[in-house]
């Protein structure tokens, strides 16, 4: 009689300990995802801050490129208002595209390319784009890990009852964006 009580008690205790440890590991993973996201977010914000400066510097030289500037400004305001990784990755992808088109047009303005201020802005922009790309890799790795964990047994039971939800990947919408688009002038 006492033995069976002890056994049942032991099993219950074991389950409680397991639940606590799984819950804790889920929290840790979620924090890691959030941390990785903040790494990207810093760089995205920096890119948003750079754009007005860049446009202001280039405007004086590029008088016939109103459309290019407009598309950049529009993409920027959309990206700034985006909520969550899925929406952000779409908006940021569009912004990247607009910026890479802009950089191609710049090639036609040798005076602008000789401007020290513009060159340093361009270097900062290139570096920021790279940092976004490298931080994206780290973030997606963390998300994959977290999503796997909340979908697999037994951690999925705890994840469901404590409202851990799947996170979105930060994808670049069209891979073509990374390639240099062919433009004939």
């Amino acid at each position: 009689m006492w033995i069976s009580f002890a056994v049942i008690g032991g099993i219950i205790l074991l389950i409680i300990v397991a639940v606590i440890s799984i819950y804790n590991s889920l929290v840790r993973l979620r924090n890691q995802v959030d941390n990785a996201w903040s790494q990207i977010d810093v760089q995205l914000k920096r890119r948003h801050d750079l754009i007005p400066n860049l446009v202001e510097t280039a405007k004086g030289y590029m008088t016939h490129e109103r459309e290019t500037f407009e598309s950049i400004t529009k993409a920027r305001s959309q990206a700034m208002g985006a909520q969550g990784a899925a929406e952000a990755s779409k908006a940021e992808g569009m912004l990247s595209e607009a910026l890479s088109k802009f950089m191609l047009v710049v090639e036609n303005y040798p005076e602008l390319k000789a401007n020290e201020n513009f060159l340093s802005l361009q270097e900062t922009l290139t570096s920021t784009e790279n940092k976004i790309a490298f931080a994206r890799q780290g973030y997606n790795d963390q998300v994959l890990f977290f999503n796997n964990k909340i979908q697999m047994f037994p951690s999925n039971v705890i994840a469901n009852s404590f409202n851990f939800t799947k996170r979105d990947f930060f994808e670049i919408e069209n891979e073509a964006e990374r390639e240099v688009p062919k433009v004939s002038f």
């Binding site: 340093s120 270097e123 900062t124 570096s127 940092k131 490298f134 931080a135 780290g138």
Partner: peptide, 12 residues
């Protein structure tokens, strides 16, 4: 700045 940026990218 470029050297510094490149190091920071690789650090990330």
């Amino acid at each position: 700045p470029q050297l510094f940026n490149v190091v920071e990218e690789m650090k990330i």
